[in-house]
């Protein structure tokens, strides 16, 4: 990493950190409590953006997996691995915050509802991608198998959603298309702001993860060449 790149990454990290503190302030101080559910509804400002980022990562996973299989350029595999890991992390956050809200609102920790179930399945699929990478004897094989699994996971999650939706559904839907926006203006601002912060966070994590991977690859290649020269 050059020092110029380094500076930009540092600046972005600082920016995201500040933005996150602003987000906490907005959620706890600025935004009014929701009438029916009270303060617990505030989890929505993190839960929903986290869910959005999860699905964004899955989309990125699919695109980079296909591109990797096509071009066999390591760069795409790094993006694919990074989006699997980051997607898995945000998916975990969604799965943890969801039940906390559900316990307060519905009185149960878990229900086999459409989106919850889909998210759980998605978590398992992403974990499977990482597991296969870990088991593979070499990086190239791991990249190929994980890319195939990534494509399968991304396509499957659509069918899972459709299937579970018909199976059972009771998730609260706040935004319905074609309806007037039901949120108070402060709520709407905060919500949009939180989405923005999470997007920036996602970008930062992707950059960091991909950089780490690229450096690791270079280090490994260099180390292998050195042992080759010595022997």
């Amino acid at each position: 990493m050059t020092s110029g790149q380094n500076r930009w990454t540092l600046a972005l990290t600082a920016l995201v950190l500040i933005a996150m503190f602003v987000a906490i302030w907005m959620v706890f101080q600025y935004v009014p409590n929701e009438r029916v559910m009270g303060p617990v509804q505030k989890i929505f400002y993190f839960h929903v953006p986290a869910a959005m980022i999860t699905f964004l990562s899955v989309f990125l996973l699919m695109a980079s997996s296909i591109t990797y299989l096509w071009t066999r350029n390591q760069r795409w595999d790094r993006i694919s691995l990074a989006s699997t890991e980051i997607g898995l992390m945000f998916c975990t956050l969604v799965l943890v915050t969801g039940p906390i809200w559900a316990k307060a609102a519905w009185g149960v920790w878990w229900t086999w509802e459409a989106r919850l179930t889909t998210t759980l399945i998605l978590w398992l699929l992403l974990a499977g991608c990482l597991m296969v990478r870990g088991y593979a004897q070499n990086q190239d094989l791991g990249a190929r198998l994980a890319s195939v699994l990534g494509v399968i996971a991304a396509l499957d999650v659509v069918i899972v959603y459709k299937a579970v939706h018909w199976w059972r559904g009771q998730h609260p839907i706040v935004f319905k298309s074609g309806e007037k926006n039901p949120l108070a203006p402060e709520m709407y601002t905060t919500f949009m702001y939180c989405i923005g912060v999470f997007m920036a966070l996602f970008l930062l994590m992707m950059i960091l993860r991909v950089t780490v991977l690229a450096l690791e690859n270079r280090t490994q290649a260099l180390a292998e060449r050195r042992t080759g020269e010595l022997s």
Binding site: L125, A153, I159
Partner: peptide
């Protein structure tokens, strides 16, 4: 063990159906 962890989540919609 690995096949089950990969196969069952993917075939979940098929299983429900």
């Amino acid at each position: 063990a690995l096949l089950s962890t990969l196969l069952f989540p993917v075939t979940m919609p098929l299983f429900i159906s």
